[in-house]
Design a protein around this nucleic acid. Structure first.
Lengths: 245, 245
DNA sequence: TTTTATAAACGTCTTTTTTACGTTTGTTTT
DNA sequence: AAAACAAACGTAAAAAAGACGTTTATAAAA
């Protein structure tokens, strides 16, 4: 038993990864599998988020960072604490109780949920200690605990936030094309956007900087590359509201 | 000792109340006072939010609702869980440790913070069991624990949310004038808004319904009364985004 | 009864942003 | 040299936002 951990408080992480080639917003999940020691019957076979108990001496943010590091090896990724889940009945399905009995933790666990935004290409799944897999957020597998609910809440928050904050760029490489940004918005929001209007609008933003570079290795006219400038963004927005009253 | 409670998890409530007459957005606080049993020295004398430990059998939302009921007698008020605070050093000031020793609870408590939106006139402070007092959010007194931080986070969230969701109306009576809405926006955001443009904009919203009623008992031209229709709002917004991409 | 003070309410012109959709350009492949 | 095609540019109309002047209805004072 790990005496460092706080028994009844955990952090669960929804790791969103954007696959720029497949144009798909994915969630990183790990498999949960348990079979009966006597009958070999499969008791639990589904997927869950990664999470872990909060350690006694660490902050909640540190717990989230630690969980991501263990799962992906990555540090310094964008994260957001978006909601706490702590209803008494959140882990009371038959499967979850079997699992909890096997793992030996308290069933009334409050979890502080975070989501991360990163690029699928930054994660090496070949040597993953948890055999983690990407699933499109629109095609989730069967999920254990209340993790489907947690993912959907995270996704809802992301949909709202990506319209009012420049978090979209956390899902893209440093250098990107206008069409890549459009594809990403379309993936997240599930809508079609007019390319000509979107293009003009984005290029007019002062914090979207055209680089002296174009795509290489493409079999059509190579597109202009751009970057996002946080410095410019912060200066422009310090006195302005995003939405007019 | 109350065996129903979960020792290390609490809910803290930021109760925002709008004083429509004073045009002031206020926070409801209770006094925290402790003096030395031997020397009568004042050890703690400041204000805090109300909160309480989560009970074993209740949801987090129910805890928040219970806390508000005990503080104000009110039920069915708008509430929002906005953030969890759980850093190991959040209750480690000298004052806080003295207080915690006196009350006898765990110093590593994770708190799930909620804010409520209501009208100051709905709360009867005359017979308040905690001697609660309203303070303008822009003129807070000295606060215990990490409660100043919690209030400022709640206020930040409210500022953003009130521009993209119709939560402003939770702070106003059912029947209101256009100018009352404008005053409220100005109080929350700390800005000046052009009355003529604001007026036109608000009246053009389909979910702002003009009533067959005017103000009574005012010493100037009485203003037209309006109401907010949640039904219309939900219909209008089900397919639309608030911000264009 | 008339006048006055004042907040409420209306109006208009200009600028900016959004929407809709047609056209041209530059690169790679054939 | 031509074809294919995504990238990039353009334009006109509609809608929204911004700036600011004017009128109106009421209570209270004269």
């Amino acid at each position: 038993m790990n005496s460092k951990k706080i028994d009844n408080i955990s952090v669960d992480c929804v790791v969103f990864g954007y696959d720029i080639n497949a144009k798909s917003l994915n969630v990183l999940l790990i498999k949960r599998y348990l079979e009966s020691k006597t009958t070999q019957e499969v008791l639990v076979n589904d997927h869950v988020l990664t999470g872990y108990h909060v350690h006694k001496e660490e902050t909640l943010d540190q717990t989230a960072t630690r969980v991501l590091k263990e799962l992906t090896g990555l540090t310094d990724q964008y994260k957001k604490q978006f909601k706490a889940f702590g209803n008494p009945d959140r882990l009371t399905s038959k499967k979850d109780l079997l699992w909890i009995e096997n793992e030996g933790f308290n069933s009334r666990t409050i979890t502080i949920a975070y989501y991360f935004l990163l690029k699928t290409e930054d994660v090496d799944l070949e040597n993953n200690p948890y055999s983690a897999t990407w699933f499109p957020v629109t095609a989730l597998p069967e999920l254990g605990f209340d993790h489907e609910k947690i993912i959907l809440e995270a996704y809802k928050d992301l949909k709202v936030k990506c319209l009012s904050e420049p978090i979209i760029f956390k899902l893209l490489p440093d250098k990107f094309t206008i069409n890549e940004v459009q594809d990403l918005y379309q993936s997240i929001l599930g809508i079609e956007i007019d390319n000509r209007n979107f293009r003009r609008k984005l290029i007019n933003k002062k914090y979207i900087i055209a680089l002296d570079e174009k795509q290489v290795g493409v079999s059509k006219k190579p597109a202009q590359l751009y970057m996002f400038s946080k410095d410019v963004y912060d200066k422009v927005f310090e006195k302005n509201y995003l939405i007019s009253i």
